[in-house]
Simulated scan of single mutants.
Amino acid sequence: MDFQPTEDQRALRAGMRELLAGRYGREPLRAAVDRAEAGGPVVDRGLWRELGGAGFFALRLPEEAGGVGLGLPEAVLVFEEAGRALLPGPLVATELAAAGGTVPAAATGEVVVTAVDLPGFAAYLGEADAVLGGGPSLRGEPVRPVDPLTPLHRVPGAVAGDAYRTEGALLTAALQLGSALRTVELAVAYAKEREQFGQPIGGFQAVKHLCAEMLVRAETARTAVYAAAVTGEGAEVAGAKLLADAAAVGNARDCLQVFGGMGFTWEADVHLHLKRAWVRAEQWLTAAAAEEVLAEELAAGL
């Protein structure tokens, strides 16, 4: 990537955005929320297979194994788009299972693979066909989730394993980045159309400052995530995860401020970005664990 996407990489990202816009726009998103609230499944199996057919999960699988044969930079770009669309499901675990060849059918989207990617919890366990590093027989106790589209099961003592942590954290950071960029778009669009005292609220300095701070957070996180995708180094990934988590959570909160009371209502989408960002901040690499990685790297250089 050389820190700037190539023409092919930009085309890949644009293609994924077009696919998700057509298959998982606002109406399917809200339908998924309603379905989840009624106790129904969250993962759309048809869309999952469609993503598999488009190469979403097989991007890093070698061509001789039936994959696309690309690398982490390309995976980061498509995961960024999935985060932007708030696409639910254990995307990271399924991609890791496909890339590593541990669950062959994961590459085509025929199976849903989850992982114990939060300390003591597994997301989508009730809908998954396999568990990364945990075998097919892992059981857990369902708990009420923070994000309606991220159902959780408590699985005390189960761990995903350090073998997946770095790549899992990077792909999760890419999802957070996509969400952070999307909330910038939502805030700016609302600030242009919502009027107060006879003019759009985007004309007020306080709102301008909020939107500017959101953009800075998102672009800083983008630089870190793209750089970590190129190097793949643990410390770079840890820094990228910290910045992407801060951008996703901070931008969703500021977007709520721009929306005012409307942002807190159930029919708005802003709260979904905030709730998902909270969950992702705990997945694969928590802030405390990322800080430990960075501290070890700094200590090693002394």
Rank of each mutant, 00 (worst) to 15 (best):
G250K: 04
L51V: 02
Q199T: 14
F121V: 02
A128S: 14
G133L: 06
A289P: 01
A244L: 04
A238H: 04
L125S: 07
Y164S: 02
L77G: 05
A31T: 13
L298P: 00
E63S: 09
D129M: 02
V293Y: 04
G46V: 03
P73T: 02
Y164P: 00
A288G: 00
R23M: 09
L72M: 14
A191F: 12
Q196P: 00
L170M: 07
V143H: 08
A93Y: 05
V237P: 11
V42P: 04
F259D: 02
M16S: 00
P200T: 14
A290I: 03
L181Q: 15
E193A: 15
L77T: 05
E219N: 11
P5F: 01
P90F: 11
L61N: 03
D254V: 00
A240R: 10
A173P: 07
L171Y: 12
W48V: 06
A187I: 07
L170N: 08
L61F: 02
R253F: 12
G53R: 15
V184P: 01
R222T: 10
D44M: 04
T114A: 12
H209E: 15
G46H: 01
Q176S: 15
H153G: 00
L175A: 04
Q4E: 13
E110I: 02
E141I: 10
D34R: 15
G25W: 10
T231C: 07
L72C: 02
T286K: 01
V113L: 05
V42E: 00
L243W: 08
G109R: 01
V279R: 07
G203C: 06
F3Q: 14
E167A: 11
L138N: 03
A218V: 03
A11M: 12
